[in-house]
C-alpha cells in the first residue's frame, strides 16, 4: 500500500521552477543539487525551468521571491516552495515526498 503510494508520486510528472541569481555560489549549488536529486529520483520525469532573476527581474515580483535560490514545485500539487541551496538532500526529498 505504502509502496503503491510512493510509486504513484514518483511516476507523476514533476514541474519545477528554480530561481537563481546570476552566478552566485548558492545558485550554482542549488542547480547542481537539484539536478542530482532529479536524476536520481525522477529520471526523465520532470520539467525544470531555471530563471535568473538578474536578467528577468519582473519574475521576482510575480513569484514573490525573496530568498535566492528558491525552488518552486508546481506539480504535482500541493505547490511547495523551498529556499536554500538544497544541500540538505534528505530534507528536500522529504519535502518533495520523494522519500518517506
Amino acid at each position: 500500500m505504502m509502496n503503491e503510494l510512493s510509486e504513484d508520486t514518483n511516476t507523476a510528472r514533476h514541474k519545477f521552477t528554480l530561481f537563481v541569481s546570476g552566478m552566485s555560489v548558492n545558485s550554482g549549488h542549488a542547480i547542481e543539487n537539484l539536478r542530482r536529486i532529479c536524476d536520481q529520483y525522477l529520471k526523465d520525469n520532470y520539467d525544470l525551468e531555471i530563471i535568473d532573476i538578474n536578467r528577468d527581474k519582473e519574475q521576482a515580483g510575480i513569484h514573490q521571491i525573496v530568498a535566492i535560490p528558491t525552488l518552486i514545485k508546481h506539480e504535482p500539487l500541493p505547490k511547495r516552495t523551498i529556499i536554500g541551496d538544497l544541500s540538505d538532500s534528505e530534507k528536500v526529498l522529504k519535502i518533495l515526498t520523494l522519500i518517506e
Binding site: N26, I68, I83, D85, K91
Partner: peptide, 29 residues
Amino acid sequence: VDHVRVERSEIEEAGEYDLDGLFIRLGHA
C-alpha cells in the same frame, strides 16, 4: 508598491541562501 509576502507555512528551508530576490525586486523598483 510592492507587497513582499513571506509565509512561514509555505516555505521550507534546505541549505544556504541569501536575500538576492529582495534586493533585485527593490533594485528593479
